[in-house]
């Protein structure tokens, strides 16, 4: 697979990158030199490997934290600034 095409594929599939980041990077790919392509490609390949290796842990951690946020959002407590009003 052509390296720049592989790079575009990894950019699109990345989880860490936001949509804005992805679009900016995709547009920038044609201007990358070999060194930049390899560095960024390795980076994204590493990201993919790390994420897949820790998928279960990450998803469980996020679920726990999202549940806490949602529960807080549904409470009647009102937060003002840096203190809780009772």
């Amino acid at each position: 697979m052509n390296k720049k095409i592989a790079l575009v594929t990894l950019i699109e599939a990345s989880i860490l990158l936001s949509s804005d980041d992805k679009l900016a990077l995709i547009d920038a790919v044609p201007g990358f030199n070999e060194k930049q392509v390899m560095a960024l490609g390795k980076m994204l390949a590493e990201e993919r490997a790390v994420l897949l290796a820790n998928e279960e842990t990450i998803m469980q951690t996020i679920k726990t934290k999202l549940d806490a946020i949602s529960a807080e959002a549904q409470s009647d407590t009102v937060y003002i600034g840096t203190g809780k009003s009772s």
Binding site: M1, K3, I5, A6, L7, T9, L10, A13, I15, M38, G41, K42, L44, A45, E46, R48, A49, L51, L52, E55, M59
Partner: peptide, 19 residues
């Protein structure tokens, strides 16, 4: 869904180019 995308064959092939 995003994790599943990472596992797609064409993404795996792309990753193998660099790692």
């Amino acid at each position: 869904v995003k994790f599943n995308k990472l596992k797609e064959p064409h993404v795996a092939r792309a990753a193998e180019v660099f790692m």
